[in-house]
Every structure is written in C-alpha cells, then in structure tokens.
Amino acid sequence: MSFEIKSLSYVYQRGTPLETPALENVSFSIGDGEFVGIMGHTGCGKSTLLHLMAGLLPAPAGTVLIDGEDINRKGYDRSVLRRKLGVLFQFPESQLFESTVEKDVAFGLKHSGLSTKDIEQRVQWAIETVGLDYSRVKGQSPLGLSGGEKRRAAIAGVLAVQPRHLILDEPTVGLDPMGREALLELLVKLNRDGMTILMVSHDADSLGEAARRLLVLHQGHLAADGPIGQVFADMDAMADWGLGVSQSREAAGLLARKGLEVPQDITSYRQLLPAVLTALKGGGSP
C-alpha cells in the first residue's frame, strides 16, 4: 500500500475563537500505482488532508502510513519521505528561486548524496520529461520562461528526485487548453510507468480523463470513494456536495434523459464518442 490513512482528524486553529474542525475520522488507503482524484467544495478539508498526507502537518489524531511506515512516528527520517513523495502545490511556479532552471530543478537533490554527474543526468531527465528543451532552458533564468514553461520547470523540480508517489494540488488552474492537455498526458505517462498519483482538483474534466478512482470530501468527512465513473454517475449527490461532473458525463446524462441509451458511468470524451456511436447505430434508426 502506498498510503494508509486511519481515522484521521484535525481541528483548525485549536484553542482560539476561530476553532473549526477540518477533518473528522477520515480513513482510506491507496495502492501502489493508482491514479486517484480528490474533489471537494472549497473549505472541505482537502488542503489539510493533503498537508497531513505529505507529512507537512503533524497528525494530532489518527495515523498516516506511507509504504507501511508511520510518518509521524518518533525517529522517522523525514528526508526519506521527501525523496519518495513529491508534492506539487497550487501555482508551483511561485516556488522557483534559483538563477538558472538547471539549479532550481536540482534543488531537491542537494542532500541526496548523488554524484554531480548523477544529479546532472537526473536534472536532464526531469526537464526533458516535462517537455522542455534541456539545452535551451538549462542555463536560463526561470523568470524568463513563459507562464506554462514555468509550471513545467516547477514540476521538473519535483520529479527530479524520482518520487514513487506524487501528490498534486490543483495542477491545471491557470493553464490554457494546450498546457492542460500536455500536463495530463505527462501525468498519465508517469502513472503508467508506476508512479502513484493523487490529484486534488476542481477540474472534473481533467479528473474524468486521467483518474481511475475518486474520493469526495464533504465538510471534513469522506463522502464517497470508488471508481470515478461510479462516483460521477450519481450527479445528484455530486450536486449536493457542491461539485460538478465532467462535461462528457453531463452530456451523457442529458442524452439519456432524451431517450438515447448511453451508459451513465462515462467520464471522458474518449468514452463518450464510441458510446454515442453505439447508441445511434444500435438504437435502430428506421
């Protein structure tokens, strides 16, 4: 198991008048190589959960196991955690700070104990993996890159340590359609190569394309957990949680209401097109 979360609870601003429960008794586990989406209305506790899972907040109640180890156990080596778990926060381009892209991407490898040559190879691999031209950007200042390129450089910095698991918070916000498409392709490829991916997002279309399983958080509770098609199928429940579904799922719902036999566990366009074709042909035109 990559992640095992057991009865995790968290209270925000404990002991002040602003005290609010952020998470209440949340449990789930994520296997190696899964691609899991997390959705929830703003303020549902997603961000807190993400910080707890990444060991960036101590867990006051409940346990977080990563690869079978309690990350809040006394004496647990956090630097090991940092190398096997990559975290990409919202607007990651804001964390770029070095004078060149190469140095910035190498930042996470500083304490890795790798040789200079190995580090260089890793950096080149990471920069090329995110689709940037290594020889062009390596000596460039990250500030000189375009918006989309900056995001890629920041992702390269997280990938350079070659983490086994990757947590992403709203990675598609602010990207234009092509940037979004390229990012999703990259994530699907990394996942195919064995990386466990956990993506927190409001972007139902992206999750519908890339994720296979979906968790829904609602007011600090785990409200749903299952194959994404199944969770999206219940559009009323999604609406109750203040969430939308992907456009393809929505279209499938409208078509079904008009009497077209389209399955209701569709999440992406890839599934919608053949389903509509089958429905039109099988539905028996006169």
Binding site: A251, L254, L255, R257, K258, G259, L260, V276, L280, G283, S285
Partner: peptide, 11 residues
Amino acid sequence: EALAEELCRLK
C-alpha cells in the same frame, strides 16, 4: 442541451 436535441431528431 442543443446536442441532445440534435441527436434526438436523428433517432
């Protein structure tokens, strides 16, 4: 919505 209308007309 318009898509659903169009597809229905076809059926």
